[in-house]
Lab assay of single mutants.
Amino acid sequence: MEVRTIKVFTTVDNINLHTQVVDMSMTYGQQFGPTYLDGADVTKIKPHNSHEGKTFYVLPNDDTLRVEAFEYYHTTDPSFLGRYMSALNHTKKWKYPQVNGLTSIKWADNNCYLATALLTLQQIELKFNPPALQDAYYRARAGEAANFCALILAYCNKTVGELGDVRETMSYLFQHANLDSCKRVLNVVCKTCGQQQTTLKGVEAVMYMGTLSYEQFKKGVQIPCTCGKQATKYLVQQESPFVMMSAPPAQYELKHGTFTCASEYTGNYQCGHYKHITSKETLYCIDGALLTKSSEYKGPITDVFYKENSYTTTIK
């Protein structure tokens, strides 16, 4: 009895394709271990004539594949690729409408935090270190965002349907971005203890939790000093293409032309909904596939993004 075979390709990165001759009487799992086709788990399936010449994702289970996976995804987590594939199996079914010149995501599976993050990423200057993220990001900007969303979920250790947080998501993504040249110098002034300067680099240099107003941050924000008295913390120097200011959701007025974009969060910790506000020729609110415009805006804002380049204080 002759062994019926077909020729397929296996890959971990969709760049390096490895030619395989597979036995049609055995499952993919018996031949390769966990195997995925377009995100779908085909591990328990036997090869079919229609699979001839198709590319299958496999887990990096030998040295060659491990090197290829690390170079593309910059992670050695053995569960990463499987999590990416199972997320992709959902995100490829989502709709990605162009809204006001940006790629958004039609609401499904509690994905409003991903839509808000995706919209924000198209408006701030950011370059990702893992080629996987950078490639998928370019495709997302062009309207094909399924891979990018699935990668975000995998890097953030999230599953489809789980509630997510924009600030946490951005923080994970910033860790995989090139923020080497970003720098922030802060000064804390206390009447009792004097003053202390701190220099922050990388992710810490672009994120701040405690106030939404970048102007206020430049002037000074009140913080408790270690001595128990009130101290003032203010920005001395900022070198970065953008800054992200966050605070627990509270009524906040966004003035046209003073910011790049913002995240609105309605609801409580267990259950809520994100919308995205962007400042173009007027203010726009993007909620999944829905767009509304207004000249002014007041609502429960939790993150505001500002364009920056270089700032030095005039406070002496």
Rank of each mutant, 00 (worst) to 15 (best):
L291W: 10
C190W: 00
A132H: 02
S294I: 13
C285W: 00
S86E: 06
A69W: 04
F9D: 10
S295C: 13
L173D: 01
L17F: 15
D165Y: 14
E125W: 01
H51E: 08
T302W: 06
S213F: 02
H48M: 10
W107H: 15
V42I: 12
C261R: 01
C149L: 07
I286S: 04
K219W: 07
H74A: 05
V67G: 13
V236M: 11
T169F: 03
T169H: 00
V188C: 08
H51T: 00
A136G: 06
V188W: 15
R4L: 11
I223M: 11
N268R: 14
Y208I: 08
T43P: 00
S246V: 02
E296T: 14
E2W: 09
T278P: 06
N187A: 08
K233T: 10
T64P: 13
G101M: 07
F128L: 02
L235V: 10
Q31H: 05
L290C: 14
N111T: 03
L200W: 05
L173C: 06
N100C: 02
P131N: 02
F259M: 05
V12F: 08
A136W: 05
F174Q: 01
Y138R: 14
T258L: 07
K201D: 06
K106V: 03
N16P: 03
V58K: 05
N178M: 08
T258N: 09
D13K: 04
L102M: 15
L102H: 15
V58H: 04
E168D: 09
P249A: 14
P249W: 00
Y137C: 05
V67I: 14
V160Y: 01
Y57M: 09
L200D: 09
F242N: 07
H18P: 15
D63V: 08
D77R: 02
T64E: 11
T313F: 08
T19Y: 12
E215P: 08
C193V: 01
T278I: 07
H18M: 08
L212Q: 06
E144G: 05
T226F: 09
V58E: 01
Y73T: 01
G161F: 03
I152Y: 03
S279T: 08
M245S: 05
A150V: 00
L290D: 14
H256A: 10
T27E: 14
F305R: 08
V22W: 01
Y36K: 02
W107M: 15
K316N: 09
M244C: 08
T312V: 14
V304G: 05
Y73A: 00
Q98K: 13
N89H: 07
D180V: 05
Q175H: 15
L283T: 07
Q134H: 14
G143H: 02
T103V: 12
S213N: 15
K218G: 02
K307S: 10
T258A: 11
V236K: 07
H90D: 08
K92L: 13
G257K: 05
T302Q: 10
P60Y: 05
D109T: 03
I286A: 06
G33I: 03
L81H: 14
T75E: 12
T43N: 06
V21G: 07
G288A: 05
Y297K: 01
D180H: 13
R184W: 08
R167D: 06
N309T: 14
E253C: 13
T312F: 14
R141S: 09
G228K: 05
Y274I: 04
S104N: 00
N89C: 08
T103Y: 12
L114Y: 00
M207R: 04
W94P: 00
V188N: 04
F305H: 04
K7V: 11
K92V: 12
T19F: 13
A289E: 14
V67Q: 13
C149V: 14
K183W: 09
T258K: 10
L37I: 10
V21P: 09
K44V: 10
V58Y: 03
Q122E: 03
Y57A: 04
V58I: 15
Y73P: 00
T260I: 12
I315C: 12
C156Q: 06
D38V: 11
F9C: 08
H48Y: 14
H176L: 12
L200E: 14
A136R: 01
Q230F: 11
N309D: 10
V22A: 15
Q20V: 10
L163S: 14
T266W: 09
H51R: 00
L37S: 13
Q175M: 12
K275A: 04
G267P: 12
L118P: 03
T75K: 07
E71L: 13
N49Y: 10
E125L: 03
A115K: 02
T282Y: 12
L186E: 07
K275S: 10
L200R: 03
T5E: 14
D62E: 11
V42A: 09
G164S: 08
F242M: 06
E162W: 01
Y252A: 07
G161A: 02
G272P: 08
S213D: 15
F148D: 01
I301N: 02
A177W: 01
K54T: 12
Y172A: 15
F80Q: 02
F174V: 01
H273P: 04
H74L: 06
S310H: 14
I45R: 13
S50Y: 11
P78G: 15
S240C: 05
S246A: 04
K93R: 13
E144T: 06
F217G: 06
Y28Q: 01
S79T: 14
T232I: 11
N89Q: 15
T198C: 10
T55K: 09
G210W: 03
V206S: 06
E52Q: 13
H176N: 05
L186Q: 08
H18S: 08
S279D: 13
G228E: 02
A69P: 05
T312W: 09
L37V: 08
C182W: 00
L118R: 00
S310L: 10
V8G: 03
A247M: 06
P300V: 15
T10I: 15
T292W: 08
L119M: 06
A205R: 04
K293W: 06
T313D: 08
A69G: 05
N129H: 09
Y252R: 06
Q20N: 06
S25N: 07
Q195C: 15
G267I: 07
H48L: 13
T282D: 11
E168W: 01
E281L: 01
F148K: 00
V185S: 05
H256M: 13
F128P: 01
A87I: 08
P224M: 15
E264T: 09
C285S: 07
R141V: 14
T278W: 00
K7M: 15
K255I: 11
M209H: 15
A205N: 05
P78L: 09
F70L: 13
C227F: 03
E296G: 12
